[in-house]
Amino acid sequence: MPKPADAVAPEGLRSSALTDDVSFLLARANAIALAAGNAALAEHGLKARSYSVLVLASGDARPSQRELAEFLRLDPSQVVSLVDELQARHLVERQPDPSDRRANVVVATDAGRELVAVARESARAAEERVHAQLSAEDRGTLGTLLRALAFPDE
């Protein structure tokens, strides 16, 4: 399978010392995956960040904006903008948090849950294309390793 166009790099750069830097490799792989994901989600009027908020709002966790910011590692103001955008499209609602009257939780509407179901397929297809050169076993191992890095306390 051909490599994504944005994954191609000149040989002189691919053989540089930077390619021994795991953090650089993670950042480059993330940039490639993010570009593919954003391209796939564009047909649904979403980008990776808004899709992430919508997926989390569609679950049972009923996250607050603060929790979304912490989990997604975004500035709280970015999450406010993302929720505002999704709310303007009637995909999420802010509802009072039953455990803290000063806070709101973000909950997907029926339309938001429907969009997530369709957009998830586009996101998965993009992920499959980006990871096509990895075996199923390697994908599983990569997921395990990334979860260990992303959630070191667990």
Rank of each mutant, 00 (worst) to 15 (best):
S15P: 01
E154F: 05
S15Q: 14
S50Y: 04
H44W: 00
S64W: 04
E43P: 01
T144L: 03
R89W: 02
L91C: 04
S122N: 04
R94E: 13
S23E: 12
D110T: 08
G140N: 09
V130L: 07
A150I: 01
Q65F: 01
I32H: 02
L142I: 09
G45V: 01
T141C: 03
L72F: 04
A103S: 14
A40S: 07
D110L: 05
V79E: 01
M1V: 13
G45R: 02
E85A: 15
R113E: 11
D20G: 12
A88N: 13
S135D: 03
L41R: 03
I32R: 00
L74Q: 08
I32M: 02
M1R: 10
V118D: 13
D6V: 10
V130I: 02
E85Y: 08
P10Q: 10
A7W: 02
S16P: 03
G112V: 03
D21K: 11
A57E: 06
L54A: 05
Q95S: 14
R89D: 07
Q65K: 14
S81M: 10
D97V: 00
D75L: 06
L145N: 06
T109H: 05
G112W: 00
N104Y: 13
Q133Y: 09
T144F: 06
A125I: 00
A5T: 12
A126I: 03
A61V: 12
D21M: 08
N38R: 01
A125W: 00
A126K: 01
R129F: 01
P63L: 03
R94G: 03
A29M: 09
S122Y: 05
E85P: 01
D60Y: 10
V92Q: 06
R94S: 09
R139I: 02
P4M: 05
P2H: 10
V105E: 13
S16F: 07
L115M: 05
P98M: 00
R28S: 12
V105Y: 03
S58G: 15
A69M: 01
P63K: 02
